[in-house]
Amino acid sequence: MIAGKVWKFGDNINTDLMLPGNLLLAPEAEQKKAVFSANRPGWAEEVHPGDVIVGGFNYGMGSSRPAARSLRNCGVAALVAETINGLFFRNAVNFGLLALECPGVHAAFEEGQTLEISIEELVVGNRNSGATLKARPVPSMLLDLMLNGGLYPYLEKQGLIGRFGAA
């Protein structure tokens, strides 16, 4: 069970807002300070580990850049949106960010409320209102990667890539 405070965003939230282009090659610690700096300055200081993002339609449209990693590095426990852009979803899998599509979620939450996710049933609940919603199913292969640190640890275990920082 995941439970976290909701930060609410609208439709078509793009990757450049989460990871500005001028920081594309910056260290991760610097990248995470700039999340939403263009549309919601100060957010990166306010977000707490375990918080969750509720989004509208087409969350994460745009670039292949590792914006999902920046959310994870900010401590975001999960993203729950009406729909999630396909490339952003891939990077959520890649970098181990739980990302669920859940019809009705945007209307069901106010910012600051507490959102609960039962991983087993993929049920999303509003602890404040009592409302529950069913998230769209995620293939188990992809859910396993999201919940276990993403693709890099898998490729390391298979002996296909070296560990980060290794020569």
Binding site: L151, L155, Q158
Partner: peptide, 13 residues
Amino acid sequence: RGIGAPDLLAAVT
């Protein structure tokens, strides 16, 4: 289609 950097490593390897 575009994929993520980790996806590309999986693709290449």
